Simulated assay, not measured.
Amino acid sequence: MSRDKEDYKELFKASNFIPCKSPEGFPPGGDCFTFSPEFGEGYYWYYEVPGQYNIKIHDFSFCKDEVLDFEIPECLSVTWYDSISGEELNPYRSLNCNVIKSFLGGYEPYRALIHRNIPIRSIGIEYRPDFFHQILKNNFGTIYEDPKSAFKSIDETSNFPEMKKLLWEIWNYNGAKSSAALYYDGKVREALALVFERHRKINEKAKTSISPADEELLKSLGLYINDHYADRITIQSLSKIACMGTTKLKSTFKVYYGMTIADYMQKVRIDHAEHLLAFTDLPISEVAKAVGYTSSGHFAELFSSSKGLLPLAYRKAFRCK
Rank of each mutant, 00 (worst) to 15 (best):
M1T: 12
R3N: 03
D7M: 04
E10D: 04
F12P: 07
K13M: 06
A14P: 08
I18Y: 11
K21W: 03
K21C: 08
P23W: 07
G29W: 03
D31T: 11
F33H: 09
T34L: 06
T34I: 02
S36M: 13
E41N: 12
G42M: 03
Y44L: 15
Y44I: 13
E48L: 06
V49Y: 05
Y53E: 01
N54P: 02
I55H: 08
H58D: 04
D59W: 07
F60V: 05
S61I: 09
F62H: 14
V67R: 13
V67S: 04
F70I: 01
F70A: 03
P73L: 11
E74M: 10
S83Q: 14
G86C: 14
N90W: 03
N96A: 14
N96K: 14
N98Y: 11
I100N: 15
L104T: 12
L104N: 07
L104A: 06
G105Y: 00
G105I: 01
Y107I: 07
Y107F: 00
E108Q: 07
E108R: 13
Y110V: 00
H115G: 10
N117V: 03
I118M: 05
I118C: 06
S122D: 01
Y127H: 00
P129A: 05
D130P: 01
H133T: 05
F140K: 11
E145Q: 14
D146A: 04
S149R: 13
S149E: 15
K152T: 07
S153Y: 07
I154F: 14
T157V: 11
N159C: 12
E169G: 09
E169Y: 01
E169N: 06
W171D: 09
N172D: 13
N174C: 01
S179I: 05
K187F: 03
A191Q: 05
A191T: 01
L192R: 12
F196V: 15
E197S: 15
R198Q: 15
H199S: 08
T208V: 08
E215N: 07
L217P: 00
L218M: 12
S220G: 08
S220F: 09
G222S: 12
Y224A: 08
I225M: 11
H228A: 00
D231F: 00
R232F: 00
T234F: 01
Q236M: 02
C243L: 07
M244A: 09
M244W: 08
K250D: 15
S251W: 05
S251Y: 10
F253V: 01
F253W: 02
F253K: 06
V255N: 05
G258E: 01
I261V: 12
I261Y: 09
D263G: 09
D263N: 11
D263K: 15
V268F: 06
A273M: 04
A273T: 03
L276K: 10
L276V: 04
L277D: 05
A278V: 01
A278E: 04
T280N: 10
T280R: 12
D281K: 10
S285K: 00
V287C: 05
K289W: 07
V291E: 13
V291A: 13
G292H: 14
H298I: 07
A300Y: 04
E301H: 00
E301L: 02
F303S: 05
S306I: 03
K307G: 07
G308M: 09
L309I: 02
L312R: 14
Y314I: 05
K316R: 15
C320V: 03
K321D: 12
K321P: 00
K321I: 06
